[in-house]
Design a protein around this nucleic acid. Structure first.
Lengths: 238, 238
DNA sequence: TCATGTTCTGGTCATCATGACTGTAAGCTG
DNA sequence: CAGCTTACAGTCATGATGACCAGAACATGA
């Protein structure tokens, strides 16, 4: 496909797809924080180390589909948000052959995360305090964290962590957990309502020992905010 | 490298690196506009069509180095700014084998662009009105254009189109050409000076028939503005 | 029943960034 | 030196944002 047409030779360069998955879970203090699932490597190289879910790219499978499939196979998760993060291809990032990894990042709902495939080879860890991972996966997660946090500022993907309907307090809790700083409830409300992307459901969430908050839904009809809509999508075919 | 270790089988999936290059040149109205160099395909498939500069990824070469090398070989250009754009891997984007392309985008100085390798197989075209390109390259350029324009808003890479020193008017002309709208000179000055990234050289640019403007230099010392500094760099080893 | 605690929710105020605009400074040209 | 052009400095209105305040509305427990 490139204009040069030397034969690529033997397949010494291999193509893999991996995914950094984020979900909100209570940390040791009880407050919601970012967690990410890891899988234990059962083969060499780096056998026994924890790594990102992933796999080799099948020739007939789309990149995004491969990301969704491998994370479903290894963790049982179906992402609500899935987007390409970056392609890592340093020559020495894997000790054996040259491996180029197209890495995606995904957001899953909290209740979904609770249904993760259990087992000794899958484990959730706090995204900010990772153990030593295989290959360059620590660096990859750090970059994914940075991207998540900057994207939360200018775009609205916080609702990807939540269910279909949510209160403003729940949405704010998500943003606070991701950005790791408290946000004034009144100002947050004003900004969110001014964005015009929240739709009142008309219902309220009763049961708590305080004034029942309104339930909102996210307006997914407007795609103009993401000019790269053809490249990023929500709710991929899981 | 992924946790699954099925053999990747035959190398039916091939890995390529391509680059979208932008430079400022006067368009038919005489105003500076974005241009991009294309190369003509000399082999099948899509022989004769114009395409982005690129080539297959050698097993021992870094992705970014491969991008810099292929664009130098085909166009003779050395980019001042080079960053990974996106990885395109749709199964059907190439008629023959499966091809996954890691695409970079580059900015080159105007005077550098004038030194492009001449020949019937290299051609500069206005980035906004492209002819029909090979494969999915039209879509790729459109995405690169969007990324360039959004990145110019929040970051300051306009100086990548210019030389070492420049006047505020020159810098403003770059931004106006990229964003395709006039910018108030006084407001632009205020915003740029407030950013704190411009350093006065102490010199002025005389010779014009008006008050000589100050010459500025860009402050490259501060890397905190780009938290992903490890992934994006300026002035790659050309 | 009713006070109490809690959060929801609507509002004010100061600050800052930004767009529109005006006026003066300082060079070159004829 | 008159006149032209752009550099540069400053004002004003507007809108977004952070800090803060106060009433509304519910569950709970006295």
């Amino acid at each position: 496909m490139p204009h040069q047409t030397e034969a690529p030779g033997d397949a010494v360069t291999r193509l893999a797809v991996s995914t950094v998955i984020f979900a909100l879970r209570p940390d040791h203090t009880g407050r919601p924080a970012l967690w990410t699932p890891l899988v234990r490597r059962t083969r060499e190289p780096q056998r026994g180390l924890w790594a990102l879910p992933g796999g080799w790219l099948p020739p007939a499978e789309e990149l995004e589909a491969a990301a969704a499939r491998t994370l479903r196979l290894t963790t049982g998760l179906a992402p609500k948000y899935l987007e390409q993060l970056y392609t890592f291809g340093e020559v020495d990032r894997s000790p054996d052959a040259r491996v180029v990894s197209v890495v995606y990042w995904a957001l899953v709902q909290s209740d979904e995360a609770a249904r993760t495939t259990a087992g000794p080879n899958v484990r959730w860890v706090p995204a900010d305090t990772l153990p030593g991972l295989a290959f360059d996966h620590n660096r990859i997660v750090e970059y994914a964290l940075w991207r998540l946090r900057t994207k939360l500022e200018y775009a609205q993907i916080a609702h990807a962590f939540l269910g279909e309907t949510f209160t403003l307090a729940e949405l704010r809790e998500v943003v606070e957990a991701v950005l790791q700083r408290p946000i004034d409830p009144a100002n947050f409300r004003r900004a969110m309502l001014a964005s015009g992307r929240l739709i009142e459901t008309g219902e309220r969430l009763a049961g708590a020992r305080h004034r029942p908050p309104k339930l909102y839904r996210y307006d997914t009809s407007d795609l103009t905010a993401e000019p790269s809509a053809s490249l990023t999508r929500e709710r991929p075919a899981s």
